[in-house]
Nucleic acid binder design. Sequence first.
DNA 1: TTAATAAATGAGTGAACACTCACATTAGGA
DNA 2: TCCTAATGTGAGTGTTCACTCATTTATTAA
Lengths: 192, 192
Amino acid sequence: MRDGSKTKELIARTALQLFVDKGVTATTIRDIAGVAGIAEGTLYRHYESKDQLAWELFSTNYLAFAEELDCLQEGYDNLKDKLTAMIRQFCTFFDRDPVLFSYLLLAQHGQLKKVTPEMETAVTVLQKVIAQGMARGEVPEMEVELAAAMVLGVVLEVAVFKAYSRITQDLAPLSEKLAAACWCVLAGNGTH
Amino acid sequence: MRDGSKTKELIARTALQLFVDKGVTATTIRDIAGVAGIAEGTLYRHYESKDQLAWELFSTNYLAFAEELDCLQEGYDNLKDKLTAMIRQFCTFFDRDPVLFSYLLLAQHGQLKKVTPEMETAVTVLQKVIAQGMARGEVPEMEVELAAAMVLGVVLEVAVFKAYSRITQDLAPLSEKLAAACWCVLAGNGTH
DNA sequence: TTAATAAATGAGTGAACACTCACATTAGGA
DNA sequence: TCCTAATGTGAGTGTTCACTCATTTATTAA
């Protein structure tokens, strides 16, 4: 009984890189096999199809990250601390694996239709946390979706800039600034 | 001499919608021709190739919008007003043609590599305006790229939420709130 | 009405694609 | 050492793709 788990991991990392570079549809099985240095048939020992590979890479990591954010968030008792911790976590993870997080950011459009509403994602966690904070009067009431979109935008667009090398420094050192900006967006013009 | 400009416009609108729905690579010439109710060959009377079609739709509108933003911006003499006007413009245009702006938002990743550095885009205009504002002391100094990313994020992510129907209302009525949030991000914790 | 010209057509073409399968190779337990 | 079962292989297969071109259709200027 041979161990193919190393090969599966190699395929995953190679595909991730190519998916980010060229997009999922434009990446061929030949591309992946060629770069990974394996035969085309080998890929099918580990993944049913290209779509299934793209979906597994997306869903596994997308949902796992949401889960981690949710656990982390529970360790704090107010919106400001929850938000700061979540942003720090995102930045740290992005720096640790930029290719993976670039994939999650950029492949979203193609894969997001397959995400069913009952799945807990980073977006739903963020909305929940913001809604709690509003209910507790920590920040002024406003449309939760709008608030979540603005906060998410501050963090994600900076990550997108980093993915495009428009920003060159690591994200983690920026996390305090990002958290401050997000807090400002939620708290309004200078109150709090 | 027949007039094919109507057909070209029909192809453009049909392709735009399909590109947003399925992505450029996953959209076939058959798809476009089928939905538009024309023959496959007809498309090639108006566009060299699928890539050229995708690029023309992207670059024309992407650069035209940047140009409009830049003209608009010149009509104001301080960062806050410039920013507010630009955001109002974006929201108005998005509401007027959501499919086009969704394409610009979501197709970015594929087309952005073809955008050469000397082209003036919405991002460069925004960076220029923010840099001016900092130089004039209207907002505290910080990394221009970071500031631009955060401001852009607030606006674009709200548009993305709208494109995904996570937000259902029009963007234009939100433009004052967005401008306030962006100003807050730039001006810092409650100062100004 | 007609001639001239551009637009529109859709079957056809070669290339590239995702995926298969009969076979070769390897690792590890007996 | 040898057997076994999983892993790895790559030429082969049917399909789908972007794109072409000889032909037809529609428009307009004369």
